[in-house]
Design a protein around this nucleic acid. Structure first.
Length: 827
RNA sequence: GCGGGCGUGGCGGAACGGCAGACGCGCUGGACUUAGGAUCCAGUGGGGUAAUUCCCGUGAAGGUUCAAGUCCUUUCGCCCGCACCA
């Protein structure tokens, strides 16, 4: 060994060696139990950032640990390579093709991942922009199309003016584009959707299967799906055949309806406006509301405004005429686009009715009290019994929800209905750098899917990237013009491309058979490896990617293409990497570059710091000084072993079991460390405490090696050092590999078995027992281990100090806790 | 407003209801040195005491318990998600 720890030389040496030996290549099958460890693959933006380093360091510890534990581990990496930045770069810098830009970035980032020493099987690498990959993305689109799960529809969609494309609901955050934060507009466009709403119930129910997911993520998905139970009720419009169908979760309050509010865009509204008294004024109001951004539109701050349309609808239960109005707070997208106003029992309706003087009619009362509409200061939203509700009077309202809905159902004017907040997934994008939607439009045949034999529908390379708001593909006649596969006539290709979330919804299946040419994957391999045992990534994908992937898996399961119900058994959402209390970002100028850290301290130090500084789910505060500390720690290990190199090579392989004194203590510490590190990694992913246990072990070793050689057993020392290296190997793979080799071991440390502890070795001879008087620590006693409660109490009660302190006091109670303490309660 | 999470030294963070502050950073002192911003050793929550020691301390206030950072109730602050969802 060199005297100095030369991380640069060591890390390069081993990265090359591992690549030469193809050390991390994973055979397709094995008799060992399988373990699929996956980190969310990155978008190739150009360089790794600290978030990536954290994500991949965590994954690598898990993969290496599981592998040493004897699992057959699949640990692959690829690239989520379609997407806007590539295209924006092409527009901005001119002359760069998105493909070239992307390939260049992948090259850089692959290099960086290799520098970090992550144990990927690089043979399985792919990028979603490879035609051999997106061919199958297109193929999967066709499978959804044939199943009736992909459809085209004209509707008001989210439009990001900056990205010049539409967005899925999931990509709109607080009314802004999730990517660029631009305020999203509404546009009326014909777009492709996936019917994720057909799977709403299953996506909700199967969350029971996701025991290994953080509660937080499951709750977020639950909220996003937003299931609610209620009823649809038909109100006939007075003097016409038309009806307004309203959705409500409170059919028990139908007798209390005093107005009916439609969304400004409601199809009936337009007809009712025509010819109404204030036609012009109302039209102006509708126009204004429609022009509002998503944020302003849905903000609860905005005052509620309504316009009566002069029309009336008939309450099916009372026969009463109820005024119909349009109101800015009613959303077309939710339910049926209208709301029945029940001021007495809904706070929003209450406020609205006060403002416009609509009657407040009480139909539910708490037991033993009478609500007076004139005296109410807020709506009564609690449970109660029905009043003013004809034959339903006296029923508990919970019961009335059912009985009234059933009654309406018999009348043919209502039905039970479950509603979801979840919308269908809009997958069209008016951009170039994505997988083409394999559809042809024919004047005779209409929408015709591209034949599977024609896949992939290739992206043309010669394209202009003018930001026009239309897909650049539309400007490319060679791409657009084709023949109709059905009639052979003139056909035009769909020019929109697919949302990149489509590409990332199935990539984890492809890793099992990345070079498969005849099908998206080999089913035997998918069935062997899936589901992913451990998935690791940022919580920002809690809804988007994770919900889409679950949806895809359910569809693929229905198509018998996969056998698993869920894609990811266990999910770890890692926290952000912060600097000075906020997220690292260029605009704040607080970015720490992984390149610099690796150049200065090496990958092992970078990895160790990031795993040591905080538990994985929590945000991590970057500290240059603490990085320095980790670097010192690795140096400390180097200096510990370097002078012992020759001695360790010659030491016997295994220490005797009947040791005494310092040797016995050292061996106990070694085995306790093995136990602690194993438990910290396996039961809770507490890498930070695992590392600190290793540090304590090193501190103990420093004391031990100072002993005269006659007092310390070389086999004990060897076992301690070997264990140290094995335990640290998943965290710092290079330095441990180097020392492993230098101390006379053949074969990579990463192919070794994870150490196991000997329960006999960790048994203590003596334990410090705390003695409390009235719950305050008054003494400590070194007692033999394994005493019973009675023996302990006996010894403690004869302790001179305790005798002195309890003298003259009345002993009320003694609580002995074996192995821990004795508490004496005195008066 | 609803849902979830978090509040512990100067800092990052440890603590099956049982010695609060492991480990690391920083700081202080010592050793080795021409030197130390290297390394090794020791100390380091606050306050009192000459001292073996004593008192106070986990955002705040109550409670349960022999014993509470940990369990229960109330409350304050910060972070995240959803939000006029009918």
């Amino acid at each position: 060994m060199k005297v100095k720890y030369d991380f640069d030389e060591i890390e390069k040496k081993w990265q090359d060696r591992w690549a030469e030996d193809d050390l991390y290549a994973v055979p397709d099958f094995s008799d060992q139990p399988k373990y699929y460890c996956l980190e969310m693959f990155p978008y190739p933006s150009g360089k790794l950032h600290m978030g990536h380093v954290r994500n991949y360091s965590i994954g690598d510890v898990v993969a290496r640990y599981k592998s040493m534990q004897g699992f057959h581990v699949l640990h692959p990496m690829g690239w989520d390579a379609f997407g806007l930045p590539a295209e924006n770069a092409a527009i901005k810098h001119g002359g760069i093709h998105p493909a070239d830009w992307t390939i260049e970035n992948i090259k850089n980032m692959r290099e960086q991942l290799k520098q970090l020493g992550i144990s990927y099987d690089w043979n399985r690498e792919f990028a979603t922009c490879d035609p051999e990959y997106y061919r199958w993305t297109e193929w999967l689109f066709l499978q959804l199309y044939h199943k009736g799960l992909a459809y085209k529809k004209l509707s008001a969609v989210n439009w990001c003016p900056d990205c010049a494309t539409v967005l899925a609901n999931e990509q709109v955050v607080n009314g802004c584009c999730e990517r660029c934060k631009t305020t999203v507009e509404k546009r009326e466009l014909a777009q492709w959707f996936f019917k994720i709403t057909d799977y709403a119930d299953r996506l909700l129910k199967d969350m029971d299967l996701l025991e290994g997911w953080p509660e937080k993520v499951k709750i977020m998905q639950e909220n996003w799906i937003g299931r609610s139970e209620g009823a649809e009720i038909d109100f006939i419009i007075d003097g016409t055949e038309d009806k307004i169908t309203v959705y409500t979760t409170r059919p028990d309050t139908v007798f209390g309806v005093t107005y009916m509010a439609l969304a400004p865009e409601h199809p009936l509204a337009e007809r009712l406006i025509a010819g109404s008294e204030k036609e012009a004024e109302i039209k102006e109001f509708v126009r204004k509301v429609k022009n509002l951004s998503e944020i302003d539109r849905t903000s609860s701050e905005v005052e509620k405004v309504g316009y009566p349309l002069g029309a009336y609808c008939i309450n099916p239960l009372t026969g009463e005429k109820i005024p119909v109005l349009i109101a800015n707070y009613v959303l077309l997208e939710y339910g049926t686009g209208c709301v029945m106003g029940v001021p007495a029992h809904d706070q929003r309706d209450f406020e609205f009715a006060r403002k416009y003087n609509y009657p407040i009619r009480v139909v539910i009362q708490p037991a033993g009290a009478a609500l007076a509409p004139g005296e109410m200061e807020s709506a009564y939203e609690e449970e109660g019994f029905l009043v003013n509700s004809g034959q339903f009077n006296g029923q508990p309202n919970k019961e009335a929800i059912k009985s009234i809905t059933s009654y309406l159902e018999e009348m043919g004017q209502g039905r039970f209905k479950v509603t979801y907040r979840l919308r269908d997934w809009l997958i069209s994008r008016q951009r170039y750098w994505g997988a083409p939607i394999p559809i042809i439009y024919c004047e005779n045949c209409g929408i015709v899917p591209a034949p599977e034999s024609d896949l992939p529908v290739l992206l043309p390379m010669e394209v202009e990237f003018k930001p026009t708001g239309q897909s650049p593909l539309a400007e490319c006649p060679d791409f657009v013009n084709t023949t109709c596969p059905s009639c052979g006539g003139q056909g035009k290709r769909e020019t929109d491309t697919m949302d990149t979330f489509m590409c990332s919804s199935w990539y984890y299946y492809r890793f099992t058979s990345p070079r498969e040419a005849e099908q998206p994957w080999d089913k035997d391999k998918v069935d062997y490896w899936l589901p992913v045992d451990q998935y690791i990534g940022g919580v920002e994908h809690a809804i988007l990617h994770l919900l889409y992937s679950r949806f895809f898996t359910k569809v693929l399961n229905d198509l018998k293409l996969v056998s698993n119900q869920e894609p990811f058994t266990n999910l770890l959402t890692q926290g952000m990497v912060l600097k000075d209390g906020t997220k690292m970002s260029k605009s704040k100028g607080n970015v720490v570059s992984p390149e610099d850290i690796i150049a200065r301290y090496g990958a092992d130090t970078a990895r160790l710091f990031i795993l040591f500084a905080a538990p994985p789910e929590r945000d991590l505060e970057w500290s240059d000084q603490a990085v320095e500390g980790c670097y010192r720690f690795l140096n400390r290990i180097w200096r510990l072993v370097e002078p012992l190199e020759e001695m360790l090579k010659k030491a016997p392989g295994r220490p005797d079991t009947d040791l005494a004194g310092a040797n016995r203590d050292m061996r106990r510490i070694t085995h306790k460390t093995i136990k602690k590190v194993t438990e910290d990694i396996s039961t809770r992913f507490n890498f930070n405490t695992a590392v600190s246990a290793i540090m304590e072990h090193v501190n103990a070793l420093y004391q031990f090696k100072e002993l005269p050689e006659t007092d310390r057993d070389s086999a004990v020392l060897r076992e301690a050092v070997e264990s140290l290296l094995l335990l640290l190997a998943p965290f710092a793979p290079h330095i441990t590999e180097e020392i492993w080799e230098a101390t006379g071991h053949a074969g990579s440390i990463h192919l070794q078995k994870w150490p196991s502890y000997n329960p006999a070795a960790i048994v203590e001879d003596e334990i410090t027992i705390v003695v409390q008087i009235n719950s305050r620590v008054r003494d400590r006693m070194l007692l033999p281990a394994g005493l019973t409660a009675g023996e302990m109490q006996e010894l403690v009660m004869h302790d001179p100090k305790i005798l002195r302190l309890t003298e003259g006091k009345k002993i009320v109670k003694i609580i002995p806790v074996p192995g821990k303490l004795v508490n004496i309660v005195v008066k």
